[in-house]
Design a protein around this nucleic acid. Structure first.
Length: 420
DNA sequence: TCTGGGGTCCTAGGACCC
DNA sequence: TCTGGGGTCCTAGGACCC
């Protein structure tokens, strides 16, 4: 059996933990730059606010209904996520953190009343973190996902749902929209519609040969999982990332090359910090900058530069130097760049990596010590405590007008309690 | 005025090998 | 006239996820 624990309206719920007066009031959380709604409380969903709606398009609804609006506060969400994971670890020795707000638990070898177990996990998450969590338990990951969605729909399930009898599963799948199944995306749904497939049960009822030929291996796996045959395994060991990307949209378009370079230096610094965090070495990267795709009449550009790092590096200064070369190379005058980023496309593990025969090992050693010092200072005093000159002030040009305090990650923002 | 960010996997096709 | 057979690796593009 597998459990899926999914935090309800996660970012919005995080904001409510420290602002309990917002319970009952619609809450939305915005993407970077205060662009789109990326999380909505149930009340906000009921108002018709959709995932990804740009704020300026829903400003009427927001004002009329006194919606509480927050800029994304990812330090807070990351920390709350970690707290929920801690609780979950108490319920299975094997957990896979699938995303910031979801985790799978392998329940193999655990012999309990699973329905009660699911409800207990949910209750305990709430008790320890004040985050509402839906827990679905079923014979496959795909079915566990569906079970957890049922919890959100039916409050009487008290946050936990165990689904395992074939006749129960059939009953659920007959009513469950195919497009809400994990693994069935928009493109696939379009094809399914033309075949008359509307529910998960319709999909399961397709012949195996049809599924395999039209939807290949991924679609076939989903089909089997819905039938109760597990074929998506637990990925409980954290593997190093195969690509690392840091990109942002700017609040204002950038038309000056040195300004763009400064931003790219900051993205590169952030990327190299992630790289070092997983003990990898970068061999290639792509630096890109794009214009505002929504401005139909403005000249459009997707400028990018492919940078090869011959000896590989995980050094702050060397990496940023290469990123800046890329940035200068891709720059085209006459465009207003709205977004840019750095993607590390080829990386290898530091362990076992051999430098080129002609590398200056002494210089490398020196650089490596400097890089480690940068890491430890920034770790102790916070990201951006030490910067390279090319990063300017270290700030990314973004608007964040509605950000909540860093309640759990900054000493200065810890809530104060008065004793009377 | 204003529109997010970061990943993974699979497949087909080309290059190259013997 | 007639032109093999089997591999691997890499990449781009498409699909999916949150």
């Amino acid at each position: 059996m597998y459990a899926l624990a999914d935090c309800n309206n996660f970012f919005a719920s995080c904001e409510r933990v420290f602002r309990p007066e917002l319970n009952g009031r619609p809450v939305i959380v915005l993407s970077n730059n205060d662009g789109c709604a990326v999380a909505r409380s149930n009340e906000a969903k009921a108002l018709g606010i959709k995932m990804g709606d740009p704020l300026f398009k829903i400003s009427d609804i927001v004002e009329k209904n006194n919606v509480a609006v927050f800029s994304g506060n990812f330090a807070l969400y990351g920390d709350m996520s970690r707290r929920v994971q801690e609780v979950l670890r108490g319920y299975s020795p094997c957990i896979e953190v699938y995303s910031i707000d979801e985790a799978f638990l392998d329940l193999d070898g655990i012999d309990v009343d699973f329905d009660a177990y699911a409800k207990e996990i949910s209750r305990e998450c709430w008790r320890q973190t004040s985050i509402p969590v839906s827990v679905g338990i079923a014979p496959t990951k795909t079915l566990a996902k569906i079970a957890s969605k049922l919890c959100k729909k039916y409050p009487k399930l008290k946050g936990g749902c165990y689904m395992h009898k074939p006749q129960d599963i059939e009953k659920v799948l007959r009513k469950f929209p195919a497009e809400d199944v994990w693994g069935i995306g928009r493109r696939m749904m379009k094809r399914l519609e033309t075949m008359g497939v509307k529910t998960a049960w319709d999909y399961v009822s397709l012949p195996e040969t049809t599924v395999r030929s039209l939807f290949h291996l991924p679609g076939f796996r989903t089909w089997k999982e819905l039938k109760g045959i597990p074929c998506i395994e637990m990925e409980d060991i954290i593997e190093p990332r195969k690509t690392i990307c840091v990109s942002r949209s700017f609040s204002k378009e950038i038309t000056d090359r040195s300004e763009l370079c400064e931003q790219v230096a900051n993205f590169a610094e952030s990327a190299v910090t992630k790289l070092r965090g997983q003990k990898s070495i970068a061999l290639e990267m792509i630096v890109f900058a794009i214009t505002n795709r929504f401005k139909e009449y403005a000249p459009q550009a997707f400028s990018s530069s492919h940078v090869v790092i011959p000896d590989g590096t995980s050094d702050h200064r060397v990496f940023i130097r290469h990123a800046l070369e890329g940035c200068r190379d891709l720059w085209r005058p006459g465009y207003g760049y709205k977004k840019a980023g750095v993607v590390i496309t080829k990386l290898v593990q530091e362990e076992g990596f051999s430098h080129s025969l002609f590398s200056d090992m002494e210089a490398l050693e020196k650089e490596s010590r400097l890089s480690s010092s940068i890491d430890s200072i920034n770790k102790t005093y916070g990201c951006g405590a030490v910067l390279l000159g090319s990063q300017g002030t270290g700030e990314i040009k973004m608007s964040r007008e509605h950000q909540s305090p860093h309640y759990t990650t900054l000493w200065s923002d810890i809530p104060k309690a008065k004793v009377r």
